[in-house]
């Protein structure tokens, strides 16, 4: 494992911790999209099925379990926690997730490495992760005001993906025959989804202002 990959994973982990701390400390999930969080849960469940049949490293296993547990913890807070669930913007978070799930699944059936259940589900999770942030970005666009923690959460999620891109470039030059077209293309799409957000985030940071999205 190279430093870019590790930095990417740590940024991903940190983004989740920031979101959980925000929810716990403020007892509020205002501005957070439950749809996006549920999509991430689907992504992790379908991707980490290999926990049952392959072992890569202790690091790998532990991280997978942490991602799964934290995803379900966040969903639990937003759906079941007495105080937190009342702060959820249900009326604003109306993205039709089937418009993401169905095309990703069809694409996974058509473009994959191997026509097996686990491999198709793994490929589906790669495609779905690329677009899973969209309900969150749409919610942000609707509610306009972006609180600091939600902004940092999304910024870190985007940074994690950008670091993975650097990791793939590094691996391409250091590992003989390393090629991952499905992962590379999806990862590039996923990073591009954040570009607009990055622009406004950096602008707010440079001007020392609270982040606002244009109407």
């Amino acid at each position: 494992m190279n430093i870019f990959r590790l930095a990417g994973d740590m940024t991903h982990l940190l983004s989740i911790i920031v979101l959980l701390l925000k929810i716990q400390a403020t007892k509020s999930c205002a501005g957070v999209s439950l749809k996006t969080q549920e999509l991430y849960a689907v992504v992790f469940v379908t991707r980490y099925l290999d926990l049952f049949y392959s072992f890569i490293s202790l690091y790998n296993t532990v991280m997978k379990i942490i991602f799964l547990l934290t995803a379900f913890t966040i969903i639990w807070y937003m759906r079941k926690h007495k105080v937190v669930c009342q702060t959820y913007d249900k009326e604003q978070d109306t993205f039709r997730v089937l418009f993401l799930i169905v095309p990703c699944f069809v694409l996974a059936l058509l473009v994959n490495h191997e026509m097996s259940v686990t491999e198709v589900l793994w490929t589906f999770s790669i495609y779905l992760e690329a677009v899973a942030i969209l309900p969150q970005l749409v919610l942000l666009q609707r509610t306009k005001n972006v609180d600091n923690l939600t902004g940092n959460y999304i910024f870190m999620l985007g940074s994690y993906r950008a670091l993975y891109l650097v990791n793939w470039v590094y691996r391409y030059f250091t590992e003989l025959g390393y090629r991952q077209w499905i992962v590379w293309v999806s990862g590039t799409v996923q990073t591009c989804v954040y570009l607009d957000f990055f622009y406004y985030y950096v602008q707010a940071w440079r001007n020392n202002e609270r982040m606002k999205l244009p109407g």
């Binding site: 990959r5 994973d9 991903h12 290999d50 392959s54 890569i56 790998n60 991280m63 997978k64 991602f67 490495h113 191997e114 491999e119 793994w122 993975y164 990791n167 390393y178 090629r179 991952q180 499905i182 992962v183």
Partner: peptide
Amino acid sequence: EEASAAHDEL
């Protein structure tokens, strides 16, 4: 071969 290599990432 390619498939298993991809699974070492998270």
